[in-house]
Design a protein around this nucleic acid. Structure first.
Lengths: 162, 162
DNA sequence: GGAGTGATACTCGGATATCTGGTGTCCGAGTTTTCGCGG
DNA sequence: CCGCGAAAACTCGGACACCAGATATCCGAGTATCACTCC
């Protein structure tokens, strides 16, 4: 089980977009350049984020992507589900109903116990991701990142949205 | 992000093996027949479980697989990690250290904040899976499964380990 | 009848093909800007 | 100098190849069983 690399990129992109001045936007090419990732492929994931109403797009020159909501109202889970989909990691195939000891389908009232365990784990995973917002991550980055990196990032941003 | 189908099969197989009489074993072919899954492919996952010391193997006629420990001491997480590996779903590629605003590596003391969030979610997921043992699942199956299915399963088992 | 021995049948184990989904890329549709021109 | 308009440049958006890992399978290695033979 592995999470798509695009998820990591998407979260980082949202964090960067969160510190943009209001009404500014950043093109996919700039976001890719900033993070050192393939531009075209990052664009694919940004489109997914736009479809999920996490980002909104501005077309034409001076256009690009920006957050569609305040960073305090976008959770990490929102980003993950936008890119990775809403499917749970575990998909019960109801194999208990197969094989030589199966009973008629209508006799299985409760969901499979194994399914319940995995669903619970999935809920815990999602709850943990939903507890953190993009705004929280911004605070963390500002606290943890080296001063020099923050300065460089600020200058780069000013130049990018010029 | 999707969990391998083999994980589901492995858990079901362990549940069935948990109700075997002591010192009996069940071949991979029988386990596959019981669950209605491809025999050779299930065998692959059973081998992984054996390598992880969840199952032990008995070679030769009347041989097969059986639990290597009491079912109360095998958690669902043990089975999942044996088949799916110990890698966390999210692997931080440290993209914060790349791009035009990067700083020297030694300046990044703390793990990336994004990484911390996903690690926490992963821990919650694992904790939820570790909270349930195979023995617990057996109890659940006995409670939930239709009476007819349990009877059929009992007869089938007696015939299989004959 | 009992023990030894060889053959046998059955099991796991790892090495080997196939295929779906993630990875990576490209060019077309649409819009804002901007430059030029006329008033 | 100001307003209008057309061209242009820049952006997103979805459609198209490629590749790794999961899926599925097979045959060889090893061992307990069993039958047979000999004592």
């Amino acid at each position: 089980m592995k999470l798509s690399d695009g998820v990591e990129w998407g979260v980082h992109a949202c964090v960067l977009l969160a510190v943009l001045p209001a009404d500014a936007a950043l093109p996919a090419a700039r976001l890719a350049e900033y993070h050192g990732v393939p531009s075209a492929y990052l664009a694919k994931h940004l489109q997914a984020l736009a479809r999920a109403d996490v980002l909104e797009t501005v077309k034409g020159p001076r256009g690009g992507y920006r957050l569609s909501r305040p960073a305090t109202e976008i959770t990490v889970l929102d980003v993950v589900e936008a890119i990775d989909g809403h499917e749970p990691a575990f998909r019960c195939t109801e194999i208990r109903r197969r094989g030589p000891s199966a009973a008629p389908v209508r006799d299985y009232r409760m969901p499979c116990g194994i399914n319940r365990v995995f669903s619970g784990a999935d809920d815990a995973w999602r709850a943990a991701l939903a507890a953190t917002t993009i705004a929280d991550l911004v605070v963390g980055v500002v606290q943890d990142a080296p001063r020099a990196a923050l300065d460089k990032a600020g200058r780069w941003l000013n130049d990018a949205i010029r």
